[in-house]
Amino acid sequence: MPPPPPPHEDVVHSEPFLRSLMRRQLSLSIACAVTFLVVLLGLPLLNYFAADLMATRVAGFTLSWLVLGVLFFPFIWIISWVFIRRSIALEEDEVKSVKR
């Protein structure tokens, strides 16, 4: 079954539209991923080079254990919440720019 003809076919199917569509979503994704990866990949480095600091006791936990076993989860929730809000806003913006 062929899809219904999209509105303003020329705009939607143009190369610049696709390029901007992919670039905007990808740069948002990459910004979020970098924030996340810096923390995720930085933690082993801290454990390696600042072992004494990471072994500091915080209410019975070692600092390293507290960060990885407890605090890491809220951190990724925040990133995903920011991403979803921005990403859905981007999409609405794209739809608006085509329908205008």
């Binding site: 899809p3 219904p4 003809p5 999209p6 509105p7 939607v12 199917h13 190369e15 696709l18 569509l21 992919m22 979503q25 999409e91 609405e92 794209e94 739809v95 085509v98």
Partner: peptide, 16 residues
């Protein structure tokens, strides 16, 4: 180009 559009364009554009 059509495939990439389907992957990335919001459904409201009717490309799905």
């Amino acid at each position: 180009r059509k495939k990439m559009l389907v992957l990335h364009a919001p459904e409201q554009l009717g490309l799905k």
